[in-house]
């Protein structure tokens, strides 16, 4: 399996642990990543309030680069906002016939052309659909028994385009977490908004969302996320959300990596802002089940 890889800006800076753990885990799953050369910002959630055309032209630039430099590969994106921005270009072009021409006129400034040939995939989609729980279980050398995990999906990975899971009741992480031997928290807040950039512009409002999510996750040992914005909002503002007991928040591939037997350092656990000693104790106490490596990983 091989994908064109778009890490996005956060994964190079404040979400480095998401980038490193994604690469480490995928490498062990025999997934090859082709970095898209010279990629640029997709506009995050800031482009749309500024310019409609820029909202589409910025991700289209990266898609055009992927078409030219990594032809035929799906584009794998770990950040949910980056994922939606790139995905929507094709969706909106399909609905508005004038749009591809406008986008390509803009990209012409750099001699680039967007043809709409790249399929955009979220990391979670690739893990759930292409790799699958059996392959994860086969690579796990540590059974996460006794660990309860709250799967947090956030918004833009499934809304407005629910391409690989149910947008109202997401559950694509359940078999992945179960495959590691962990319990999955039965909760209804997995798709509840974390407040996103309101944390910068209207912190009081975002904190109310964060508080509601953390409270609902109280029965879990750890929340896992698939988006750097969700991760930051849930891990960095726990005391301001008046959440008394710290709850650990990890990126999904960090948890996968730990189950694969990677060290805390290999998944950059030291970079997380909310990891309790209780979680570390439970993780290190997990039984090391000899890896039942299958000779042919499924889903390839």
């Amino acid at each position: 399996m091989k994908y064109a890889y778009y890490p996005g800006c956060s994964l190079g800076t404040s979400a480095e642990e998401y980038d490193v753990s994604t690469r480490e885990v995928l490498r062990r799953l025999d997934v090859e990543l082709a970095d898209i050369p010279d990629w640029t910002c997709c506009g995050a959630s800031a482009a749309e309030p500024v310019s409609r055309l820029l909202t589409l032209a910025l991700p289209a630039r990266n898609l055009a680069l992927a078409e030219r430099e990594a032809a035929g590969l799906d584009m794998l994106v770990p950040c949910s906002a980056c994922y939606l921005n790139h995905l929507r270009v094709g969706r909106e072009c399909a609905a508005d016939r004038a749009l591809p021409g406008r986008i390509n006129e803009a990209l012409g400034a750099e001699g680039l052309h967007y043809a709409g040939k790249v399929r955009v995939r979220h990391l979670l989609d690739v893990l759930a659909a292409d790799i699958g729980p059996e392959a994860l279980a086969a690579h796990a050398s540590r059974r996460l028994e006794g660990l309860t995990v709250a799967p947090y999906y956030g918004c833009q990975v499934l809304r407005p385009y629910a391409l690989f899971d149910d947008a109202e009741h997401p559950r694509s992480m359940t078999p992945l977490i179960s495959a590691l031997g962990a319990q999955v928290l039965d909760w209804s807040m997995g798709g509840r908004c974390c407040g996103a950039s309101l944390m910068a512009t209207r912190r009081d409002v975002a904190l109310a969302s964060v508080a509601a999510i953390l409270e609902a996750a109280a029965g879990a040992d750890v929340i896992v996320t698939v988006c750097p914005m969700c991760q930051m909002n849930l891990e960095a503002y726990q005391s301001q959300a008046h959440h008394a007991d710290t709850i650990s928040v990890l990126y999904l591939p960090q948890l996968l990596g730990l189950a694969f037997g990677l060290s805390d350092d290999q998944v950059l656990l030291g970079k997380n802002l909310a990891v309790t000693d209780a979680l570390k104790g439970k993780l290190h106490a997990c039984p090391t089940a000899g890896p039942e490596r299958q000779t042919t990983p499924t889903g390839g």
């Binding site: 918004c155 809304r159 908004c193 996103a196 950039s197």
Partner: peptide, 9 residues
């Protein structure tokens, strides 16, 4: 609006 797209959905 935090662009959660729940209303759109």
């Amino acid at each position: 609006c935090s662009a959660c797209y729940t209303c759109t959905l």
